[in-house]
Design a protein around this nucleic acid. Sequence first.
DNA 1: CAACAAACCAAACACTTGCTTGGTAGGCTA
DNA 2: TAGCCTACCAAGCAAGTGTTTGGTTTGTTG
Lengths: 196, 196
Amino acid sequence: MTSQAQTSTRREELLAIAAELFATKGFKNTTVRDIADAAGILSGSLYHHFDSKESMVDEILSSFQEELFGKYAEIVAGDADPRAKLDAAVRVSFEAIDQHRNEVAIFQNEADYLGTFDRFAYLADRNKQSRDVWHALLNEGVSSGALRQDLDIELVYRFIRDTVWVAVRWYRPGAKLSHTDIANQYLTILLDGITS
Amino acid sequence: MTSQAQTSTRREELLAIAAELFATKGFKNTTVRDIADAAGILSGSLYHHFDSKESMVDEILSSFQEELFGKYAEIVAGDADPRAKLDAAVRVSFEAIDQHRNEVAIFQNEADYLGTFDRFAYLADRNKQSRDVWHALLNEGVSSGALRQDLDIELVYRFIRDTVWVAVRWYRPGAKLSHTDIANQYLTILLDGITS
DNA sequence: CAACAAACCAAACACTTGCTTGGTAGGCTA
DNA sequence: TAGCCTACCAAGCAAGTGTTTGGTTTGTTG
């Protein structure tokens, strides 16, 4: 029934093509015929590789998230000081935007809607998990005295999360500013503000 | 042909219903039957009021943008000092999120896709206009010495724009923090950073 | 009361959608 | 060479989609 993920090249090619379309046009806006056209085959042939259109996004999103949260876990478990951890988490996020643009975009745009289906309940879990990570880092920062005491942690978390991820809307790899440049500027603003 | 906007109550009711659905489910995900159901009528009856489903979003978005950009224009033309102008622009934006949540959400989620059609070319124009507004405010700030010199204006603009508007994803009117509270915290972070 | 318009219904049409089915081409292996 | 497997085609179906058409209800106005 459920086709297992293999090292099948063709399968990954098709997923990449689908991801590109889902990211730019949206999941519902992308038809299986769109995907098949882009791949140079007929729409029905997609069903040799996948159960359904839904299972394609599913595979795209879940495999990406597994990778990303692995990195977050490493940072949290590490023994760097609070500020360095916050720094690292921000950098890992911009790195993800650089290397998995489509996956990030799909998650940003479709998570809310897809999350209403049982199949994609794990998206909400991941969201909660992410919140825990950032709260932990921010609280560490406040306790250690590295961050200001008068901040609403939940609000700061949301600002960081949103501002980081939403960059996927305009960031393009190979542009003037690398993802590292952007992370630098962002951390500067976040940590020290824009006033002189 | 093109039905003019009147003070027709029913028409506005239907637009509000449609806006709510477009904002939560997405434009493509919302069917005319969904809208009609929510309004307690049959789908065909919608066409007594509107030319098409597209013209509904069109009317929703364009009328909202007209109002918003009027306020931006006032701020830019005003004679307040740079920092106060920046402050005002941020506050006006959060106010819009508070008072026109659905419209903001639709614009955030669908502008990219809708913008690819001729009919919605004005969305790109508005984007450019918005960019001009913020660039002007930020440049004024730097020239006057109120803001740091080492900032990449374009990048700061994007961060502000994204972080402000993306708040529509989680902000709900009547919650613990009012839109003014949120604007305050945001301006604090933006201007002074989160470090102690 | 007659005339009219706004709001809506009932039913359909043409098209698009995700998906299914039975079959085929070509390469690999025993 | 026979058997098999991966990748695909060709054709279609059932459900869902935006939209159209002709008619009905209801309230208002001269």
